[in-house]
């Protein structure tokens, strides 16, 4: 009753504040449903009862009761509750209650046609300048940037550690959407806009929850071709004939891999999707494929190790 998010088809929520949004979403839809369920039977009844065949002469005065005024009053109250009880406080938290910088992962995300450049500040915690080139690079003349790392299209985070994203764009307006984190913020050239959230679910937990047997039908492979399918194998798949690996756990199921599995006689694969970054604002020809992934590490050590690896 309180949280219909699954029932309404919303993506799995992996964030701290998501549940507030989901509950509010549910109540708004309850209101819609109730109004619809009041109107619809009345409407159908009128159409049936007052058909000219059944009711040859209309009643001049029509409805005299005040019920509709009460209904409208009810809508006013319900909307006021949604506004004051949910919308305003939730928005205030999202916009104003930023976590302590010292306790947060801080990254710059610089959007461009058609990639998400995620800049990590390195050990000094300070961001250096970036170049006006394409692809974007760390400006080596700025000492603050010596230990900065740019990872394109992957946002690494740590479970339960708040993250502050300073969002900007170098060309057109993009929109930084993380469906699983209930985050969406336009990236607007000329502005740097901070966004924060807390990932409450790690990627491994997410994959556990989302994994399922996927049929590799011809149709599935056709889809996979266009463009590469975005699922991860959740188990090793050795070739039944010899002992070579057709797919390993954690491997992305590209067309090539899917075809290999299919030809090896495997018609179902245990796989999971990823948490994704999607661009929600039309930004040009390849807008549709401006995709990134979010990897939430279980520990800070794992996170540090990945960044250290990327800085060479």
């Amino acid at each position: 009753m309180n949280d219909l998010s699954k029932w309404m088809g919303m993506p799995l929520d992996a964030s701290g504040h998501g549940v507030d949004i989901d509950i509010m979403m549910s109540w708004v839809h309850w209101l819609m449903l109730v109004l619809f369920l009041i109107w619809a039977p009345f409407f159908l009844y009128c159409l049936w009862r007052f058909n000219a065949k059944r009711h040859p002469r209309a009643i001049y005065t029509g409805v005299k009761s005040k019920i509709s005024s009460y209904l409208e009053g009810g809508v006013v109250i319900a909307e006021a509750v949604l506004l004051v009880g949910f919308a305003l406080p939730i928005w205030a938290t999202i916009k104003n209650d930023f976590p302590e910088e010292s306790e947060s992962t801080i990254v710059n995300v610089i959007a461009e046609q058609f990639a998400w450049n995620v800049v990590y500040p390195g050990a000094d915690g300070e961001f250096g300048l970036t170049t006006l080139t394409k692809p974007i690079q760390i400006d080596t003349s700025d000492p603050r940037g010596e230990d900065d790392v740019i990872i394109t299209n992957t946002l690494h985070l740590v479970k339960d550690r708040p993250v502050i994203v300073n969002l900007s764009s170098r060309d057109v307006i993009h929109s930084f959407a993380l469906p699983n984190m209930r985050v969406k913020q336009d990236a607007i050239p000329g502005l740097e806009i901070p966004v924060w959230f807390v990932p409450r679910m790690s990627t491994s937990e997410f994959r556990q929850q989302m994994a399922k047997e996927m049929p590799i039908s011809d149709d599935e492979r056709r889809r996979a071709q266009y463009p590469p399918y975005r699922w991860i194998a959740m188990r090793d798949y050795p070739d039944p004939a010899d002992s070579t690996m057709l797919a390993e756990e954690g491997q992305r199921l590209s067309t090539r891999v899917l075809t290999r599995l299919y030809e090896g006689g495997i018609t179902e694969v245990y796989a999971s999707p990823e948490m994704e970054i999607s661009c929600a604002q039309l930004c040009g020809g390849a807008h549709y494929s401006m995709r990134g992934t979010v990897i939430v590490h279980d520990t800070q050590e794992e996170f540090d190790a990945v960044l250290a690896e990327s800085s060479f």
Binding site: M8, G9, M10, P11, A177, P179, N180, R223, Y226, P227, R230, W231, P273, E274, E276, S278, C279, A280, L282, G285, H287, Y288, S289, R291
Partner: peptide
């Protein structure tokens, strides 16, 4: 839209797994 599918996608959302 509830599932998060953006508008104006040339491939109708195939790029994304959600």
């Amino acid at each position: 839209g509830m599932a998060g599918m953006s508008r104006r996608l040339f491939d109708g959302g195939l790029t994304y797994s959600f």
